[in-house]
Design a protein around this nucleic acid. Structure first.
Lengths: 132, 132, 132, 132
DNA sequence: GTGGTCTAGACCACG
DNA sequence: GTGGTCTAGACCACT
């Protein structure tokens, strides 16, 4: 069963897209593996505090992309193959990084500022994780 | 007059929010300064290829937040004071960096992967700009 | 025992409603008679290839309407009285015919077109039945 | 502008399908013609007493089938070509008639009963129309 | 005013 | 319990 403990909701993008991204990132990271169970619509919607249909939309889209597989009455499971996972990896990192760099460039910051900020935040968050 | 040359539209969030963010980031970066003229609704909507109402909505929100000020028939100008600008600065960078770091950590990447990706994308985008 | 040989499932309306309509139409036609046995939930669900819960729902509704009666462990039987059957008869035919006529009138067809279509389809379906 | 005066809502099938059928029947009947305006989402939803999204779903489906055409901010119009209209005609009549005949056969009625019922209802409804 | 999209709630069939 | 579908309301971008 996939865990959503590390899911951090944000209201800047549609919830159903955040769910999709979360699962794709988990696959790319190897945290989520093929054959694993996906939480049911009701379970996940209760956990995230959203409508079951929002989860449904995310799952439906993932199914069209071949990432999960659903059937009436049965649990949905991850069915992404290795090729699909590999293609997700590079794409997700590049998308995130590109958006980040665009924003920083517009804020007139230097490459050194960017690297320093990432480095600092990374260490801060690692410290927090250790405390938890 | 504020330049919108570096404005890069993206369809993943409402356009009116992108305009707001663009101006706030410019203020934080010092590229946009208090007292500077803001393009007219008509001019900006033509420049960005969007509907005047969309620009109107962005300006109206910025006005409520005290970032710009407009009077009937007169041009709108930036009225953000130093306190407001200071609070924007830092916050924007940290927000962006934090979200970026969180996503990469969730993808099980190392700090080195992150720094390498930012560095690579930064150079790639700098090359593109030079070509343009 | 009621026969479901002529039951033709259609996915345009809920299955449990189709079962209800099938029994009501049979009563109106005199094919199904008061006192007759109703198939057990398990038997009918197996015969129609649907879930036992779906049959249960149909029977429960028919019970509330006084069409069938069931007791714990005993077989369900048709308990509709003559008054109920009379009210079903006529009404079903008129309802069906009225909807049919309304639709055809809206399609700007003539009475002759309607009669010809019914006659043609009737013969076609009779041929099919003979083949089976 | 297409008129929905003759639209008769029924709760036995999804509303959005009823809207689709109404328009297709109108096209088959020649009452609705290519190039004609379709009521706006809001106008039709208010008229029928349903949610604008229900109308939206009907229009979206019709657009996928090539019956209507929509664009942001502009009115949707009928774009079905002659070939499409011709194929609608026979199909709609056969579908309706087949369902009607199936139900009557199950009610143990004869072909003569069916033709008589259609003929009687047709005349009754024609009388009503004249009175109106 | 127009159409497009996201979120929400209820109902259905199925195991 | 599971997933699938229909209806509903609010927000967004555009003419």
């Amino acid at each position: 069963m996939i865990s959503f403990d590390r899911f951090i909701p944000s209201d800047s993008s549609p919830i159903y897209l955040q769910i999709i991204t979360y699962i794709k990132q988990g696959l790319a990271a190897g945290i989520i593996k093929p054959g694993e169970d996906v939480p049911s619509r009701r379970a996940l919607s209760a956990l995230l505090g959203v409508n079951p249909n929002t989860v449904q939309k995310a799952y439906h889209t993932l199914e069209e992309e071949g990432v999960i597989s659903s059937a009436q009455g049965a649990k949905s499971i991850i069915t992404a193959d290795d090729g699909l996972i590999r293609s997700l990896k590079g794409q997700l990192l590049d998308d995130l990084s590109e958006n980040y760099v665009i924003a920083l460039k517009h804020m007139n910051l230097s490459k050194e500022d960017a690297l320093a900020a990432v480095s600092r935040l990374w260490d801060e968050m690692s410290d927090k994780e250790e405390i938890q």
